[in-house]
């Protein structure tokens, strides 16, 4: 069934009229089906006919990654972002975006792994505890070092990490001293919050102390709707 260039977008809206939109997606030809020749269609499926649906989600749960590999990859990510932006705020936003897509996937994966006893979080404190323990432990193998509520503002919370792993090998030059590459982790946290319907902004700030020169505080600022809902729920 030809539908011209609406086939190219995965965001085509469904239509209730069966003559325009026939039922299930299998009757919709795969994207680029009519445009590609038969040779390139071989590339869509692996020769062993295995797809991502055959892999078990717990397969990589116990596996570890070398810190050096991650450090090199993260360094390249920072350099890649740096070439495409002008300004520190933009760079932090780009890193935040990278972390965001990771956080969306991590949220679903972690809750799936909890199994039947999985509970969705509906309260602010609940979701923050979830991030401090479960999310942090699954990425960094240790819970975050502290969670505080701001005394001045109702909608601000602070998550403290004494030594963010992503920053361990990075020395920010003096002219960019406001940059904190933990904006990447802030993106992960923001995505987890957004997914659970607690929209807000998460930013990373470095607060070096004598004993902990790499201490970072993630400032979590929730939207007003979240605070209203929280007070309604009692």
């Amino acid at each position: 069934m030809q539908r011209g260039d609406s086939l190219n977008s995965p965001f085509v809206p469904f239509s209730p009229n069966p003559s325009i939109q026939q039922g299930t997606p299998t009757s919709t030809p795969p994207l680029k089906h009519t445009l590609s020749s038969s040779t390139s269609s071989n590339l869509r499926y692996s020769s062993s006919r295995k797809s991502i649906y055959d892999r078990h989600l717990n397969r990589s749960q116990r596996s570890e990654l070398s810190k050096a590999s991650f450090a090199f990859l993260f360094g390249e990510m920072v350099q890649y972002a740096q070439k495409r932006v002008n300004g520190i705020a933009d760079l932090e936003k780009k890193l935040n975006l990278h972390g965001y897509s990771i956080g969306q996937r991590l949220l679903e994966l972690l809750l799936w792994r909890e199994g039947r006893s999985a509970k969705r979080e509906t309260r602010i404190l609940g979701i923050l505890q979830f991030i401090t323990t479960t999310v942090y432990r699954s990425i960094f193998n240790k819970p975050a070092d502290g969670l505080e509520k701001s005394r001045d503002n109702e909608d601000e919370y602070m998550l403290i990490d004494n030594d963010p792993m992503v920053n361990s090998y990075i020395s920010v030059p003096k002219e960019m001293s406001q940059l904190n590459c933990a904006a990447f982790v802030a993106g992960i946290i923001e995505a987890v919050l957004d997914g659970c319907l607690f929209p807000g902004r998460v930013t990373a700030h470095s607060v070096p102390t004598e004993q902990l020169p790499a201490k970072t505080v993630f400032l979590i600022k929730f939207d007003e709707s979240v605070i209203e809902r929280e007070s309604v729920l009692g």
Partner: peptide
């Protein structure tokens, strides 16, 4: 389980249509 696996695809973003024949 199937949805989570779909989400693990880096080219699949949240709120995209699922058009995979395998998923179906």
């Amino acid at each position: 389980d199937l949805y989570t696996k779909t989400l693990m695809n880096p080219f699949y973003e949240v709120d995209m249509r699922i058009t995979s024949g395998v998923f179906d």
